[in-house]
């Protein structure tokens, strides 16, 4: 039996071998660096919730304040998800027979909580505090995006450590007046710049974002 020899025409690929040897590590590095970054993995997460609740209708069209439902956000680390009875405050009268609201009515009747899926989920070793950010004038929209335009809530920001630190190192552009924190569409008054207003507020609110590891990890 004679040995197998590559046919002569495969010699065309010979100069390409060097290119592949250089190209492969670069390709793999880029693939893993961008493919595994939180920007690629987490942004756009949009789970299907047990009730098709639309923030665009409630917070956008009806103009309800975020704090009507997420009532603990100003006082505690955790922004509470409302109980079914909070929903029933209005839905006792509005759309009382809607089939979409059936799980809510059942939850309100038997006291079993609705099993909402968490969209903005941080790892267990990160201790984030909502009240600390609201009391310093960081708006909801900075992390959660335009929730008032979302029919289904989507994660818009990567929520990675580097992304948190970007703002902790340079907070000027992210700070707004405290009474505008829940206003999703807030814009600086005409003729003024966001970072200039922010820089003033950082002074007056006495903001020194902490960057020690133990601030969030404990």
């Amino acid at each position: 039996m004679s040995l197998f020899h590559f046919p002569r025409w495969t010699d065309v690929f010979r100069p390409l071998m060097g290119l592949a040897a250089i190209g492969a590590p670069v390709y793999l590095t880029v693939l893993f660096y961008y493919g595994a970054s939180p920007k690629t993995l987490a942004v756009g997460f949009q789970p299907i919730q047990p009730v098709p609740f639309s923030h665009a209708v409630h917070a956008g069209d009806l103009g309800m304040d975020c704090r009507y439902c997420h009532s603990t956000v100003e006082d505690s680390a955790h922004a509470a998800v409302p109980t079914a009875s909070t929903c029933m405050n209005c839905h006792e009268r509005i759309l009382p027979d809607s089939p979409k609201l059936l799980p809510v009515r059942e939850a309100a009747r038997n006291g079993e909580p609705l099993e909402w899926l968490r969209v903005h989920d941080l790892p267990d070793y990160v201790y984030f505090n909502h009240s600390a950010h609201l009391s310093k004038g960081v708006g909801c929209v900075e992390c959660h995006g335009r929730v008032d335009r979302m029919d289904v809530v989507t994660q818009e920001q990567p929520l990675s450590m580097g992304w948190c630190l970007d703002c902790h190192r340079n907070p000027d552009e992210r700070i707004r007046p405290k009474d505008e924190v829940t206003n999703m569409g807030w814009e600086p008054p005409a003729g003024e710049y966001r970072d200039e207003i922010g820089a003033e507020l950082v002074q007056s609110y006495n903001i020194h974002p902490r960057q020690d590891c133990s601030t969030c990890h404990r």
Partner: peptide, 10 residues
């Protein structure tokens, strides 16, 4: 300390 600092800051 974190919770006390947050409280004092607020």
């Amino acid at each position: 300390l974190q919770s006390v600092t947050d409280q004092a800051g607020a």
